Amino acid sequence: MEVRTIKVFTTVDNINLHTQVVDMSMTYGQQFGPTYLDGADVTKIKPHNSHEGKTFYVLPNDDTLRVEAFEYYHTTDPSFLGRYMSALNHTKKWKYPQVNGLTSIKWADNNCYLATALLTLQQIELKFNPPALQDAYYRARAGEAANFCALILAYCNKTVGELGDVRETMSYLFQHANLDSCKRVLNVVCKTCGQQQTTLKGVEAVMYMGTLSYEQFKKGVQIPCTCGKQATKYLVQQESPFVMMSAPPAQYELKHGTFTCASEYTGNYQCGHYKHITSKETLYCIDGALLTKSSEYKGPITDVFYKENSYTTTIK
């Protein structure tokens, strides 16, 4: 009895394709271990004539594949690729409408935090270190965002349907971005203890939790000093293409032309909904596939993004 075979390709990165001759009487799992086709788990399936010449994702289970996976995804987590594939199996079914010149995501599976993050990423200057993220990001900007969303979920250790947080998501993504040249110098002034300067680099240099107003941050924000008295913390120097200011959701007025974009969060910790506000020729609110415009805006804002380049204080 002759062994019926077909020729397929296996890959971990969709760049390096490895030619395989597979036995049609055995499952993919018996031949390769966990195997995925377009995100779908085909591990328990036997090869079919229609699979001839198709590319299958496999887990990096030998040295060659491990090197290829690390170079593309910059992670050695053995569960990463499987999590990416199972997320992709959902995100490829989502709709990605162009809204006001940006790629958004039609609401499904509690994905409003991903839509808000995706919209924000198209408006701030950011370059990702893992080629996987950078490639998928370019495709997302062009309207094909399924891979990018699935990668975000995998890097953030999230599953489809789980509630997510924009600030946490951005923080994970910033860790995989090139923020080497970003720098922030802060000064804390206390009447009792004097003053202390701190220099922050990388992710810490672009994120701040405690106030939404970048102007206020430049002037000074009140913080408790270690001595128990009130101290003032203010920005001395900022070198970065953008800054992200966050605070627990509270009524906040966004003035046209003073910011790049913002995240609105309605609801409580267990259950809520994100919308995205962007400042173009007027203010726009993007909620999944829905767009509304207004000249002014007041609502429960939790993150505001500002364009920056270089700032030095005039406070002496």
Rank of each mutant, 00 (worst) to 15 (best):
E2H: 09
V3I: 13
V3T: 14
R4E: 15
V8D: 09
T10H: 07
T10D: 14
T11H: 00
T11D: 06
N14G: 13
I15P: 01
I15G: 09
I15C: 10
N16D: 11
N16K: 06
N16R: 14
L17H: 14
H18A: 11
H18T: 11
H18F: 09
H18E: 06
T19M: 13
Q20V: 12
V22Y: 03
M24Y: 09
M24R: 13
S25L: 12
T27P: 11
T27Y: 10
G29T: 07
Q30F: 07
Q30W: 11
Q31N: 12
Q31F: 14
F32I: 14
F32N: 13
G33K: 08
T35Q: 08
Y36D: 06
L37C: 11
L37Q: 11
L37M: 13
D38R: 11
D38Q: 11
D38Y: 09
A40G: 13
D41W: 03
T43D: 09
K44T: 13
K44V: 14
I45S: 14
K46M: 04
K46A: 13
P47G: 07
H48W: 14
H48N: 12
N49I: 12
S50E: 14
H51F: 02
G53L: 13
K54A: 13
K54W: 14
K54R: 14
T55K: 10
T55H: 12
F56K: 03
F56P: 03
Y57G: 06
Y57C: 10
Y57S: 08
L59H: 15
P60I: 08
P60R: 07
P60N: 10
P60F: 12
N61R: 11
D62Y: 09
D62T: 14
D62K: 09
T64V: 14
L65W: 08
L65M: 11
V67R: 13
V67D: 14
V67I: 15
A69P: 03
F70G: 13
F70Q: 11
Y72H: 14
Y72R: 11
Y72N: 10
Y73C: 04
Y73T: 06
H74M: 09
H74L: 11
H74S: 02
T75N: 09
T76S: 11
D77G: 03
D77V: 07
D77E: 08
P78M: 08
S79C: 14
F80D: 03
L81S: 03
L81H: 13
G82E: 15
S86A: 14
A87L: 05
A87Y: 03
L88T: 00
L88D: 04
N89K: 14
N89W: 14
K92Q: 12
K92Y: 09
W94L: 00
K95M: 12
Y96N: 10
P97D: 11
P97S: 01
Q98D: 07
V99P: 09
N100D: 09
G101R: 09
G101V: 02
L102A: 05
L102R: 03
L102V: 08
T103L: 06
I105Y: 06
I105K: 04
K106P: 07
K106N: 06
K106W: 12
K106I: 05
A108K: 08
A108I: 06
D109W: 05
N110P: 00
N110Y: 04
N111D: 00
N111I: 07
N111S: 08
C112A: 13
Y113S: 02
L114V: 11
A115F: 04
A115P: 02
L119E: 03
T120R: 09
Q122S: 06
Q122C: 06
Q122H: 05
Q122E: 02
Q123Y: 03
E125I: 04
L126Y: 00
K127F: 11
N129C: 08
N129Q: 00
P130K: 03
P131V: 04
L133F: 06
L133M: 07
Q134L: 07
D135L: 09
D135H: 13
A136T: 08
Y138H: 15
R141C: 14
R141T: 12
R141D: 05
A142D: 15
G143Y: 03
E144M: 10
E144D: 14
E144F: 06
A145E: 02
A145M: 06
A146H: 07
A146M: 07
F148T: 05
C149R: 06
A150P: 04
L151T: 03
I152F: 03
L153M: 14
Y155D: 07
Y155Q: 02
Y155I: 01
N157L: 01
T159N: 14
T159Q: 15
V160N: 05
G161C: 09
G161S: 03
E162F: 03
L163S: 02
G164L: 02
G164F: 04
G164V: 10
G164H: 04
V166H: 13
V166S: 00
V166Y: 12
E168K: 10
T169C: 13
T169L: 10
T169D: 00
T169N: 00
S171M: 12
S171I: 11
S171D: 04
Y172H: 12
Y172D: 11
L173I: 11
L173F: 09
F174P: 07
Q175R: 11
Q175A: 12
A177P: 01
A177G: 06
A177F: 01
N178Q: 12
N178P: 02
L179S: 05
L179G: 07
L179R: 02
D180F: 01
S181L: 09
C182G: 06
C182R: 08
C182H: 04
C182P: 00
K183G: 07
K183L: 10
R184E: 02
V185A: 06
L186K: 07
L186G: 04
N187I: 08
N187H: 07
N187S: 12
V188E: 06
V189F: 10
K191L: 13
T192G: 09
T192N: 14
T192D: 12
C193E: 04
G194Q: 07
G194A: 06
G194Y: 03
Q195A: 14
Q196N: 11
Q196F: 12
T198D: 07
T198F: 15
T198L: 14
T199W: 03
T199I: 13
T199C: 13
K201L: 10
K201S: 12
K201T: 14
K201D: 06
K201R: 14
K201M: 15
G202N: 03
V203R: 13
E204H: 09
E204S: 09
A205E: 00
Y208L: 01
Y208Q: 04
Y208V: 04
M209C: 13
G210P: 00
G210S: 03
L212V: 11
S213P: 10
Y214N: 03
E215G: 00
E215H: 03
F217I: 13
K218P: 01
K219A: 12
G220C: 01
V221M: 08
Q222C: 09
Q222G: 11
P224K: 11
P224M: 15
C225S: 01
C225T: 03
G228I: 05
K229G: 15
K229Q: 15
Q230K: 11
Q230P: 12
K233L: 15
K233T: 11
K233G: 12
K233N: 01
Y234S: 08
Q237I: 08
Q238P: 01
E239R: 09
E239C: 11
P241Y: 05
F242I: 00
F242T: 02
V243Y: 02
M244D: 01
M245P: 00
M245E: 03
M245G: 00
S246D: 07
A247P: 04
P249E: 08
A250C: 14
A250F: 06
Y252G: 00
Y252C: 05
Y252S: 08
E253M: 11
E253G: 00
L254C: 02
L254N: 03
H256D: 05
H256F: 09
G257T: 05
T258N: 11
T258F: 01
T258K: 05
T258D: 15
F259Q: 05
T260P: 02
T260Q: 05
C261W: 02
S263P: 00
S263Q: 00
E264R: 06
E264H: 01
Y265W: 04
Y265H: 05
T266D: 07
T266S: 10
G267V: 07
G267E: 05
Y269L: 13
Y269W: 12
Y269I: 11
Q270T: 15
C271Y: 11
H273C: 04
H273I: 00
Y274T: 06
Y274F: 07
K275I: 06
K275N: 01
K275V: 09
H276R: 00
H276P: 00
I277D: 00
I277E: 01
K280M: 15
L283T: 03
L283P: 01
Y284D: 07
I286F: 01
I286S: 01
G288W: 00
L291V: 15
L291E: 12
T292V: 09
S295I: 09
E296C: 13
Y297D: 01
P300Y: 14
I301V: 06
T302R: 03
D303I: 01
V304E: 06
F305H: 00
F305N: 01
Y306V: 01
Y306S: 02
K307Q: 11
S310W: 12
S310F: 14
T313M: 13
K316F: 15
K316P: 15
